[in-house]
């Protein structure tokens, strides 16, 4: 309990008094009797003083708590304003490139007499349009994820992992990396967990896809799963280039793209989606990385 110490402090005098009473009660012989004498004036002064002390203490404590809460709220507001600004900047950046490409494409379409140039411009326009549609779909997916109700069933994580690894291996880039999956069999296989299967598939596929995308040909990717207390833990480890320390904090954020990721296609929403899915299930995401050694992503999902 968070406020246990406060209640302990409040009850301490009572406990001490009670302990003293019990102690004296068990002492042999007659108990000494104390008589306190005071006139009305003194009583009134003492009574008034005690009341003022109690009230003053309460007021002081409340003010102190309110000030602390306000500080927390202020810090939270500053942080969320910052996050919002950052998100808008990133969104602006994500939109700028395809829009610039489209304006140039349109100029080519109108200005070039060469038919093959015009065809190329049309193809490029279509690619950029699809890129923007993809971005809008991913953003929508992310906001919907935060509100939609989970359709929980009993889900076999081993099955999903096997299926997704098989799917990823069918990608041409995956053939150039060595991808392995290890699932526990002894003393017992992974338990089924209560989860939304479709969302879990989305998260796990994205995680594996990410590992393939951000490693080089020849790298190793290991997918492992285990049962730890009342959680299923999924790890995806690679021997890729790693993520710099100053970027690790941000990689889970919407639209964030690290320096090493900028040259690669993607919306910058993959990891944010994974985090949203896992957190909706009451789980946690983590990542450790060392430059030039590799990265390990960990997903913790409660079984119940």
């Amino acid at each position: 309990m968070k406020h246990a110490w406060r209640w302990t402090a409040a009850l301490l005098p009572l406990v001490i008094g009670f302990a003293l009473a019990v102690y004296w009660e068990t002492q042999p012989g007659s108990q000494p009797v104390y008589v306190l004498k005071a006139d009305r004036v003194a009583l009134a002064e003492i009574f008034g003083g005690i009341c003022s002390l109690i009230l003053g203490g309460v007021i002081f404590a409340r003010n102190w708590l309110a000030r602390r809460d306000r500080k927390n709220v202020d810090a939270y507001l500053v942080r969320s304003a910052q996050e919002r600004r950052q998100f808008i900047l990133r969104l602006d950046h994500e939109l700028k490139n395809p829009l610039t490409a489209m304006r140039a494409g349109l100029a080519n379409l109108g200005g070039s007499p060469d038919e093959s140039d015009r065809q190329a411009a049309l193809t490029s326009l279509e690619t950029q349009l699809l890129r923007l549609s993809r971005l809008s779909a991913d953003l929508r997916k992310l906001t919907e994820l935060e509100q939609q109700s989970l359709e929980r069933t009993s889900v076999n994580v081993s099955n999903i992992l096997e299926e997704m690894v098989e799917l990823i291996q069918a990608k041409p880039e995956a053939c150039e990396r060595s991808l392995s999956l290890s699932l526990p069999q002894a003393p017992w296989p992974l338990p089924s967990i209560s989860a939304d299967r479709d969302l879990l598939v989305l998260a796990i596929y994205n995680l594996l896809d990410n590992a393939v995308k951000y490693t080089r040909p020849g790298d190793r990717i290991e997918v492992r799963a285990s049962e730890v207390e009342d959680h299923v833990v999924i790890e995806v480890a690679d021997t890729g280039p790693g993520i710099p320390d100053d970027e690790i904090q941000n990689v889970w954020d919407e639209l964030y793209r690290g320096k090493g990721a900028r040259s690669l296609p993607g919306s910058g929403l993959g990891l944010a989606l994974i985090r949203a899915v896992v957190e909706r299930h009451g789980g946690k995401v983590q990542l450790r990385s060392r430059i030039d050694q590799g990265t390990i992503f960990t997903i913790n999902l409660p079984i119940r």
Partner: peptide, 12 residues
């Protein structure tokens, strides 16, 4: 039905 598409969606 799902309102979105993703690479593994057709399996879903």
């Amino acid at each position: 039905v799902w309102g979105w598409d993703y690479p593994v969606g057709t399996r879903t």
